[in-house]
Design a protein around this nucleic acid. Structure first.
Lengths: 131, 131
DNA sequence: CTAGACCTTGCCGTCGGCGTGAACGCCAAT
DNA sequence: ATTGGCGTTCACGCCGACGGCAAGGTCTAG
């Protein structure tokens, strides 16, 4: 399988695959003419990468997973390093959630304060008491 | 007040203030020698910028607020454009929260799945039944 | 033989918010 | 007069994950 086919099957660009190779995430064998050659296991690796990136991991953080896969494990998450990355990422997500929650509260408070300031007379009863 | 003093009082770097000026967020008067001169209202503007950036707004998004302040309004959020930015940011934060929440669920699921796979025999009863 | 569809390497561009350094000017104190 | 501590502009660097383009090589079909 050449780079174009792998790219299409994995749903990424050839440029991205070359980028992964530059990072050492996706080492490719070469044919005599210099073309990169990939196998099914490379498709599995790229799929793993994209899934993890979709969960917010950086490319560097996917490294333990792809190495775990290449080491022959059934899942990229079968190795201790991968588990550690999962834990760390989960902690980061929790921190982000906490921060975003606080930000949300503050944003809403500021928004309502600004709205109150611009509409200083909220007369609800008057409109209700028209005969 | 020169740039160094404003920077210190606002808790930012002089470089940041020059950057804000480049963006047109913080226009500065100049003395005869070319030095930038600032007043108390500029400190208010920088404080507003930093507060909003702390809430996750980009510098561009703070523009309506600082312009609102310079227009003489008591608060940077007194103008319609600022309110709109608040609303939009709140929506973005809500979207991020939803996404992050889903990511968290998925991350935890993957983590637990990986842990189960690595510890295939969780014998709780055995340890409990020792006499 | 040639078109065109693929592949290669290499290198610059993007986005935001500045950091950092060069090379220089201004001013008060010693 | 000089030192030191301000200020100025200019311009590149950084981070991540590629996009895009140039200039060329390779293979297949007609």
């Amino acid at each position: 399988m050449r780079i174009g086919e792998l790219a299409e099957r994995a749903g990424v660009s050839p440029r991205a695959l070359r980028h992964y190779e530059e990072l050492g995430l996706l080492p490719a064998r070469r044919r005599a003419n210099g073309y990169r050659t990939y196998g099914e296991e490379d498709l599995r690796a790229v799929t793993e990468i994209r899934t993890l990136v979709g969960l917010g991991l950086s490319l560097e953080e996917t490294r333990p997973f792809v190495e775990c896969l290449r080491a022959g494990h059934p899942s990229g998450a079968s190795c201790a390093d991968s588990i550690a990355v999962y834990r760390q990422k989960l902690a980061e997500v929790d921190a982000s959630l906490a921060r975003l929650g606080a930000v949300r509260v503050e944003l809403e408070a500021q928004l309502h304060a600004a709205l109150r300031e611009r509409a200083p007379v909220p007369r609800c009863e008057l409109t209700l008491e028209e005969p």
